[in-house]
């Protein structure tokens, strides 16, 4: 921090952070947002630039496992933080995260612009509430806009990804009937 206030050009500062498991050390302009850092410096273009006002959720990433709007987050505010973008969600061998797979299976992706934000917001919900109800899923993605309006499939995908998967709970007890399930009002499926 300079003592003088008359600044011609703000000095870059050192930023250490982990993005998708990789450590980075960068010199960053204070005015740079996390979204710019990800998209322009690290070429991670999964987080989308849309409204830049916090109204759409397309730039959502996870900072220390919590959803955050990267367009409203200064890069320097992420010192020593763990950032996860959509690029970091699949396993090392390329197999999709269960929530990503659920988005594919349920047809929850249309133009795809909102998808990274939807999936990361959904992942944070599943981390906190492993078997969310459709209402909890809808509440969680309240700040994520889908202009294709494919919300029904997105909610279905999040709820489906939370469904107990047979062996995941120690293999013993079957999941309680109805838990985490979402029945289509028309078909009952």
């Amino acid at each position: 921090m300079n003592d003088t206030v008359a600044i011609e050009r703000a000095s870059k500062q050192l930023l250490r952070l982990t993005v998708n498991g990789r450590r980075h050390e960068l010199l960053v302009e204070p005015r740079r947002t996390l979204l710019q850092l990800l998209r322009e410096d690290l070429q991670l273009t999964g987080a989308k630039e849309v409204c830049l006002l916090g109204a759409c959720g397309a730039c959502t990433v996870l900072v220390d496992d919590e959803p955050a709007l990267s367009c409203l987050t200064l890069a320097l505010a992420c010192r020593e933080k763990k950032v996860t973008t959509i690029e970091g969600l699949a396993a090392q061998d390329g197999s999709l995260h269960p929530l990503q797979q659920a988005f594919v299976d349920k047809g929850a992706v249309q133009c795809g612009y909102c998808t990274p934000g939807m999936i990361l917001t959904g992942k944070a919900l599943l981390d906190e509430t492993p078997q969310p109800t459709p209402e909890q899923a809808r509440q969680a993605i309240a700040g994520n806009l889908c202009r294709c309006t494919g919300y029904v499939q997105i909610v279905e995908a999040i709820v489906a990804a939370g469904r107990p998967q047979g062996s995941c709970c120690g293999g013993g007890e079957p999941a309680p009937k109805g838990a985490g399930e979402y029945l289509m009002p028309e078909t009952g499926e």
Binding site: M1, A10, S11, P30, L52
Partner: peptide
């Protein structure tokens, strides 16, 4: 992307430091 204007950034670790800095600038 619309850039933010140029500014310096400080992250004081105590309330007193923050008040001192804000008072000075």
């Amino acid at each position: 992307m619309r850039l933010l204007h140029d500014f310096e950034y400080a992250e004081p670790s105590s309330l007193d430091q923050a008040a001192e800095l804000l008072g000075r600038v």
